[in-house]
Design a protein around this nucleic acid. Sequence first.
RNA 1: GGUGGCGUAGUUCAGUUGGUUAGAAUGCCGGCCUGUCACGCCGGAGGUCGCGAGUUCGAGUCUCGUCGUCACCGCCA
Length: 585
Amino acid sequence: MYRTHTCGELSISYVNNEVTLAGWVQRIRDLGAMTFVDLRDRYGITQLVVDENTNTNVVEVLEELGREFVVQAKGTVRERQSKNKNIPTGEVEIALSELKVLSPSKLPPFTIEDKTDGGDDLRMKYRYLDLRRNPVRENLILRAKMAHAVRTYLNLKEFIETETPVLIKSTPEGARDFVVPSRMNEGQFYALPQSPQQFKQLLMVAGFDRYYQIVKCFRDEDLRADRQPEFTQIDCEMSFVEQDDVLEMFEGLTKFMFKDTLGVEVSDFPRMPYTEAMEKYGSDKPDTRFEMLINDITETVKGNNFVVFDSAEYIGAVCAKGCAEYTRKQLDGLTNWVKRPQIGAKGLVYVKCNADGSFKSSVDKFYSQDDLKVWAEKTGAEAGDLILVMSGDKNHMLDALGELRLEMANQLGLRDKKVFKPLWVVDFPLLEWDEESKRFHAMHHPFTSPKPEDIPLMDTDPAKVRANAYDLVINGVEIGGGSVRIFDSALQAKMFSLLGFTKEEAEAQFGFLMNAFKYGAPPHAGIAFGFDRLVSMFAGLDTIRDVIAFPKNNSGRDVMIDSPSPIADAQLDELSLKLDIKEKN
RNA sequence: GGUGGCGUAGUUCAGUUGGUUAGAAUGCCGGCCUGUCACGCCGGAGGUCGCGAGUUCGAGUCUCGUCGUCACCGCCA
């Protein structure tokens, strides 16, 4: 037996017990005639003591001990003379009778402490050491708790957890596929799933009625702080339901997770149409922790011979509360910020609403105090506020104002990580025009059903068709999305034709699904949550990396195992593959 | 594919208009220390300034290239 207790459980009630502990050496404090060793495991830290009464064998072992050695320690629990109130085991210590090195350790490249001195790169290279640290491990424990909550809730609601294949078929729609060559089928490839979409729909045809899976998905696209090439979804599908049924079920799941893992009660989720989100927040994933809504002031401000505004398709404004005192430098900073290529605005007009009721703007030449007063009324600005105005192409400006809104909220500290504001964004457009390929793309995916009342528009004005599609948004982060599916072959065929598929292409790529639908497909709908994002939000983090045990870096590399990597010629031969790497330049 | 930041001791960083022997903290090693818990005190070792070219009398510092890393845009049905 390696241990009788963990390093986190001993307390004053164990005094005089003989115990055996095992763990890692956190730190050694050598005071001369006595030495303290902090022994650490997953559960906590317990102090070991060596003093003049300790037998010499122990003292000898102690000599060679270093950080991160794995040791087994036997001894008697005793009450400390001076107690440490900061740790649960701080009232007791172990007077050692035996000490054994189970496994020595090289000096770690960074310190294994809550506030490590290690940079991201090193931590990733030695991820197994990083995972010894409390904050990182706690993130993964939170993740496990949340996964447990998901299963508890969905099992209770009669969902069947079902595994779907990882080696599937490549389709050109959507993100790039990761592909896997097939040895037994020369020249042919599997693809890793971007989501189990079609399988879960087939499970509905199979009569499973309610399905879920916590499942890895794969997308061969560039990474971000919140995007990894392999990531985890809570993937769900239900039969004989309408949109409201799905929203209700998964609002319930979300609330349950908040309550179960954070002890947080969140109120009912508002439902906001996509167009409202775009026009008021400049985003399809609005952060509703704060107001600062975008106001359309196009008609209000046109016609004063200010060419920039008069020639603009759209003029929008946000009101930053209490920012009238912004200095020239701060305003220039904001202007430069919106002019960066990422935002790409031409400029920024400001109006300061002074405390005395007067206005000071960057366009005083064109607008009177009375004009500006109307602007203030339109944007809800009061004395002390700052109005920020941008003009240009409508969609571009809504986007820019949306970004500006978030930036101002950051500056004003309005994005509290401890506050959670979930909402449903609904009524997404069914289709999205792609300039590059000159055709429509499915905004969600090709199996999303149009709103019944919009079906006639599919022939006349496809861009106007709204879908029975919905996103769960929390604090400006897209946490989940789903839709009511098409279960009628004729409507599905029409959808494929709108997306520019020939009958043959649709047959080749999705024939199995369309075939299945000919054998009695129930009405069904579903949703998928980005589990990594949800965990990182619960943990108050901005990156999903720290809630993934072994994440990849910005270039999609695992720097610990050093992958991806070349494979042997023999392997290529077996796969009948020949590399032809093109010179870059 | 693009834009920007960073790369200096084991680690985290500082390093002035280009100028003598490149610093700090922490970690590490040695010594002292009986109640520490970020122990304390004294001493010591530790550097291809990512790599390559260029400008210059002289480059950690300037220029170009390259590699690595991070953030963002494109991309992510």
